[in-house]
């Protein structure tokens, strides 16, 4: 998984220098006319070889440090708790009004602000999830495909707080959201969190496509309906069939054949409760990747080389003598 590497492998050619301390072990020039008179001293001979090896070792360590020996960075796959979550966020103009259908003030935040703030909290509490961000108004807009990069998800959510535009086309938005999942559902559970303050008619053709995609991706669908004051409720019984009412959309979703939950929120605290509930429900095993950072061994190698070098230096000083009068 992780392995060693060199930044400058060509520097390793300098390892050839390490043989230098080992050279000249044979016959050598000596100030006395004959060595025969000097008794053989095995301790000194051993010390000589030891010191030369130490010198060679310190040079080798130094060359390894200069070559940039390091443990490569890598990715390890781990299993945690989480899901693949597509955040499908309504960006039509009405979302920029408050729950009381007024202009937002310092005290009362807009539906967008409340929803995004609570989704950001949801995101912060789920470190192993992958997220995608899909905005929809008149047209569906893919802000960010599914990713593990948390900074990018945070940036996409931040961008969702900007002024909204246009009208609402739920069908195409859902279609784009479902298109974010691969067909391989063994990796993680697919979840769509759909946040909107309205409903609308979905084209028959699009309805069939959504149903097929939902079944194919085994998605868990959550509809967080931000109910504005005066708007029809999600669970209201309808006297007359109104295809564009939230209740009809609720009906359609519940007949999709995939796990589905609807939440109606009339104020930010209700949104918070809904998001917490979703957070508790979506706990599945997920394979995620963790980045193992690169580690440089240079400091360690310098320290070891220094250790060897100091021993050699002490030996040299001792041999040559620090004071006059010694041989």
């Amino acid at each position: 998984m992780t392995s060693l590497g060199f930044d400058y492998p060509w520097v390793l050619l300098l390892l050839g220098l390490c043989v230098m301390p080992l050279l000249g072990l044979g016959p050598r020039w000596w100030p006395s006319p004959s060595l025969i008179g000097i008794p053989r001293d095995r301790v000194s001979e051993g010390a000589e070889i030891g010191l030369r090896l130490l010198a060679a070792l310190s040079m080798a360590l130094l060359v390894l440090a200069l070559g940039g020996l390091h443990r490569r960075d890598g990715i390890v796959t781990r299993t945690g708790k989480g899901a693949h979550v597509v955040l499908l966020i309504d960006r039509s103009v009405s979302m920029d009004q408050t729950f009381d259908d007024r202009e937002p003030t310092a005290k009362q935040e807009s539906k967008t602000a409340a929803a995004v703030r609570l989704i950001q909290k949801f995101f912060a509490g789920r470190p192993h999830d992958q997220f995608a961000v899909v905005a929809f108004s008149t047209s569906p807009i893919l802000a960010l495909p599914l990713t593990e990069h948390r900074a990018a998800v945070a940036a996409a959510l931040g961008a969702m707080k900007r002024p909204a535009l246009g009208k609402t086309d739920i069908g195409r938005g859902l279609g784009l959201a479902l298109a974010q999942f691969g067909t391989d559902t063994t990796q993680a559970q697919n979840v769509v969190l759909f946040v909107s303050d309205g409903a609308g008619v979905i084209d028959r053709e699009v309805k069939d496509k959504i149903r097929a995609d939902a079944l194919r991706t085994h998605v868990h669908l959550y509809y967080l309906y931000l109910r504005t004051k005066g708007d029809p409720g999600l669970f209201e019984k309808m006297d007359t069939a109104d295809a564009s009412a939230p209740a009809s959309l609720n009906q359609y979703f519940s007949e999709l054949g995939v796990p589905y939950r609807a939440f109606e929120a009339e104020d930010p605290s209700a949104v918070a409760r809904a998001v917490e509930q979703i957070d508790r429900l979506e706990v599945h095993p997920i394979r995620y990747h963790e980045h193992v950072p690169r580690r440089d061994y240079a400091p360690l190698l310098y320290a070891l080389a220094l250790g060897c070098g100091v021993l050699v230096a002490l030996a040299l000083l001792a041999e040559r003598g620090l004071a006059e009068g010694r041989p």
């Binding site: 802000a143 990713t147 990069h149 900074a151 940036a155 996409a156």
Partner: peptide, 26 residues
Amino acid sequence: FLLLEPVEICENFSALEDAIRHIDWR
């Protein structure tokens, strides 16, 4: 229409790359 606030390009390379590739006239 802002899709992504500015993010660091090397750390988030694959996410940015994916987002750019998906930009579409639709």
